[in-house]
Amino acid sequence: MNTLERIQYLNTILLEEMPQYKADAATFPDEIHTQRRLLRSLMNLRPPGPITADFLREQDILLQQEATIKGVVKPNELPNIADETSKDITPQGAPAHNLILWQGDITRLAADGIVNAANSAMLGCFAPCHGCIDNAIHSAAGLQLREACAQLMEQQGQPEPTGQAKITPAYNLPSKFVLHTVGPIIPANRQPNVAEAELLASCYRSCLKLAAQHQLKSIAFCCISTGEFHYPREEAAQIALNTVSHWLASSGSDLKVIFNVFKDEDLAVYKSLLKI
């Protein structure tokens, strides 16, 4: 089947599972762009549960084709901070050759692990086509990721505490693993307090600990808590750099750490702090 036929086939399966959305789905034209948006919406809405082998086979073909079209980015092809500054040590004291600053779509990175800014339910974003990184990662990984997270949460028996992290396979992403961490939520019109700053630092340490336990050679951090959770970006970036720097220095690890930014504002903040 061609791409449009594959998308429509996947939509048909999901609508049979969730017939309450059939009326809305009927308003989507039979065009590849709109049918693909419908598919992402239905995948976002679908609760965890058993998935047919037929669906997974065709979903995986589609997602892997899309990953190839977007282009896979390999960490060893990216310049590190030492390359960009001609310095061995960053202003935060970390080995400059271990750190990379990269602006782009984290779902393109073929790092051993990428970090997802999750919520305490750890099941991904259920808002159709929402712009958060949680939605982007789950949408590109496929329905297996939500199911894997659901199994972890069922075993845990409680919401994921802020500052901790879990690890799952990455399924259809170019990375090998996804590390899910829950950052602090900052109320509007208030600066983070000391306890919230420590919780954000704990997110980074928890992910680094998991990376070491699973012998990852590279990990890409998003800007944890700075999106939907409203942590001020400059303070968050400083915590990220200081925490990672201290961990690399104290552990002696040769882990390659990528600070992945998407917005121009975040890129400017990291460049300023790293003196690039």
Rank of each mutant, 00 (worst) to 15 (best):
L4N: 06
Q8V: 05
I13N: 06
I13M: 07
L14M: 05
P19Y: 05
Q20N: 09
A23L: 14
A23M: 15
D24L: 14
D24G: 11
R36L: 14
L39D: 07
R40W: 10
S41Q: 09
L42D: 06
L42W: 10
N44W: 03
N44G: 07
G49R: 00
E58C: 05
L62H: 05
L63N: 11
Q65F: 12
T68F: 06
P75E: 13
N76Y: 07
P79E: 04
N80C: 15
N80K: 06
I81R: 04
A82D: 15
D83A: 14
D83Q: 09
D83V: 00
E84R: 11
E84P: 04
S86C: 11
Q92T: 07
Q92M: 14
P95Y: 00
A96N: 09
H97V: 11
N98P: 08
N98T: 05
L99Q: 03
L101F: 03
Q103K: 15
Q103Y: 10
D105Q: 13
D105R: 07
I106K: 08
R108E: 12
A110F: 01
I114W: 10
V115R: 08
S120K: 09
L123W: 10
A127H: 04
H130N: 13
G131E: 11
C132K: 03
D134A: 09
N135Y: 11
N135S: 15
I137F: 03
I137P: 00
H138S: 00
H138D: 06
S139N: 08
G142P: 01
G142E: 09
L143D: 09
A150K: 03
Q151D: 07
Q156E: 15
G157L: 14
P159C: 12
E160W: 04
E160H: 09
E160Y: 01
G163T: 08
A165D: 10
I167E: 02
T168D: 13
A170S: 10
Y171A: 00
Y171E: 02
L173G: 05
L173A: 12
S175E: 06
K176N: 12
F177Q: 06
V178Y: 07
T181S: 08
V182A: 03
I185F: 10
I185L: 14
P187M: 07
R190E: 14
N193R: 04
E198K: 08
L200I: 09
S202D: 13
C203F: 11
C207R: 03
Q213K: 15
Q213P: 14
Q215W: 06
Q215E: 15
K217F: 04
K217N: 13
K217M: 12
F221V: 02
C223I: 02
I224R: 01
I224P: 04
I224F: 04
S225W: 05
T226S: 02
T226C: 12
G227N: 05
H230D: 11
H230W: 01
Y231L: 08
P232W: 06
A237P: 11
Q238F: 11
Q238E: 15
I239L: 10
I239C: 03
L241Y: 08
L241H: 06
L241W: 10
N242F: 01
T243E: 10
T243V: 08
V244W: 01
W247G: 03
D254G: 06
K256D: 03
V257N: 01
I258G: 01
F259D: 00
F262R: 01
F262N: 01
D264F: 02
A268T: 02
Y270L: 08
Y270T: 01
K271A: 00
L273Y: 01
K275H: 08
K275L: 06
